[in-house]
Nucleic acid binder design. Sequence first.
DNA 1: GGCTTCAATATGTATAGACATATTTGCGAA
DNA 2: TTCGCAAATATGTCTATACATATTGAAGCC
Lengths: 235, 235
Amino acid sequence: MTGPLHQRIRGDIEARIRSGEWAPGHKAPTEAELMDQYGCARMTVNKAMTALVEAGLIVRRKRAGSFVARPKVHAPVLNIPDIQSEIVARGEAYAFRLLARTVRAADRDSPEEVELAAGGKLLELDGVHDAGGRPFALERRLVSLKAAPEIEAADFAEHPPGAWLLEHVTWTEAESRIGAINADAEDARLLALDEGAACLVVDRRTWREGQHVTRVRQVFPGEAYDLVARFGPGA
Amino acid sequence: MTGPLHQRIRGDIEARIRSGEWAPGHKAPTEAELMDQYGCARMTVNKAMTALVEAGLIVRRKRAGSFVARPKVHAPVLNIPDIQSEIVARGEAYAFRLLARTVRAADRDSPEEVELAAGGKLLELDGVHDAGGRPFALERRLVSLKAAPEIEAADFAEHPPGAWLLEHVTWTEAESRIGAINADAEDARLLALDEGAACLVVDRRTWREGQHVTRVRQVFPGEAYDLVARFGPGA
DNA sequence: GGCTTCAATATGTATAGACATATTTGCGAA
DNA sequence: TTCGCAAATATGTCTATACATATTGAAGCC
């Protein structure tokens, strides 16, 4: 085990916790004891323990000591991958087909569109992500031209709109929502599914400095796609 | 602005990044400059910067300096909440109705069940989570009695099986999968939906010290439920 | 017994200095 | 000109020490 000493200490303790050797509630050695064990300064031990606290593996109480944390109520995190890299990672050919591109005003009846437009116009982009020549996901996106005027000149031959935006207009805040819907006739046609088939929907909105930049709704065939998260306590 | 100095430094810099004042790629002050600004030791500044690196907000390169990180390709994380606390947090009444409880052997044709049972028997628990008196989620769970023998004596009046297990058999590893399905006749009946309605499915398996403990499949009405994640860069 | 007080303990924060390491820059030699 | 080496720079790690702070446990008092 090479590398920095504080990492080694952290790793040793983490291993004991993950293996179950130290059950939740188990009292870990004090910093003084670890100093002796590793023959190092307290700051070094402290750095290791602090990292374990941030990772959620250890809880510390002054005077009492350090204890293995109780894994929280299922509070796992799930990684929502970028579609393009997801497909490429599987070794399949990726393509984005732009189906429609419209510049229009916000629908006055939709408060959300009005907020997104912020007094300007909206760019609506509809397209399909293909994996290995077959439709993989549907995308409908609205972009505020006030927040990202440069996108009007962009073509999406190289990068799909999501990647283009990520490159050119960095977000500072985002919200994702995951749900399930029954494919309507158009969804079904574009994804080559039967009408009514269950689909996973990811609805994502991003902001930059408080200004709403884009909203995208991606539809995946429920049968063919799922999101996976694997983790240990605190990870 | 009280609290530890290293936290204040971290907070100041984080605020500049999140506000967009420092765009991705922007060069942050060096540790020496921050020492001067705050009139403190380098270790203190270093602690702040290290925390920002772990939070994914800053990238550091020796000799070159510290830079605001480019937000990763959509790498948001999604919190999959615990059903009971989710419902209680909304201010609705929570209840778990156990529909079936069976002790049985693993299905020899299912490699997964065989692995879960690990030579012992399985406890199958089917039930419905109610929110405000209406069905909110369906749950079908298999528990390895070898891994959690105490559960045979448990009744789930107070805590649903998930909470019981969390309390009594801590997991060290877990995997969650999220997908979409069309409700079959039974799902539809139990959730008071139409057959074929799109539902969100969370499939979760947990292990303890390499031993598979439980597998649970939760079905949510797609129309009524979605998972939300809100975050800023690195958060 | 029950209460307060006080000291011991373990962590939390901070310092100043030291050496290690990676990377860039610029200078000098082939 | 270009290659290669060395110096400068900024971060990475570690030490030894100091004082602050929260909590526990025990002593002492009513």
